[in-house]
């Protein structure tokens, strides 16, 4: 059965969300809730690791669009890392690389936050 999971870990003052499985209109609210709870806690430095994400539709991309402005207004950012080529293609198609920091590797993103 296709499923979706979000797990959270802290690395200094950065929070890393690992997303796993299938992100579509059915599962997008789970990620939405995850990001919303970080914002509610005043956590605005966020890395989302896509290593274990198998599939994304526009409903998943929309989640990032819904939060980015608020996070950046609070001197934070959402950095996206470890995308496989199939997932990156969807982001690229919509011009996301112009708007989001999409990086090869989670550690690289954490380092950038701390630099």
């Amino acid at each position: 059965m296709e499923s979706f999971e979000v797990t959270k870990k802290h690395d200094g003052n950065v929070v890393v969300l690992n997303i796993k499985g299938y992100l579509d209109a059915h599962t997008a609210p789970m990620l939405e809730n995850g990001l919303q709870s970080l914002i509610d806690q005043g956590q605005f430095r966020i890395v989302v690791n896509f290593k274990d994400l198998i599939y994304i539709s526009s409903a998943g991309l929309g989640v990032f669009m819904g939060f980015i402005e608020n996070i950046r207004n609070n001197q934070g950012d959402i950095k996206l890392t470890n995308m496989n080529p199939k997932i990156f293609r969807v982001f690229d198609l919509l011009g996301f690389p112009m708007l989001y920091d999409i990086m090869e590797d989670e550690q690289q993103a954490i380092t950038k936050f701390n630099s």
């Binding site: 526009s58 929309g62 819904g66 402005e69 919509l94 112009m98």
Partner: peptide, 17 residues
């Protein structure tokens, strides 16, 4: 897309895809 981000619009991407 940049405008969508500004107005926090989440939908409307599907048809484009």
């Amino acid at each position: 897309i940049p405008h969508y981000v500004q107005v926090r619009k989440k939908g409307g991407l599907g048809i484009f895809i």
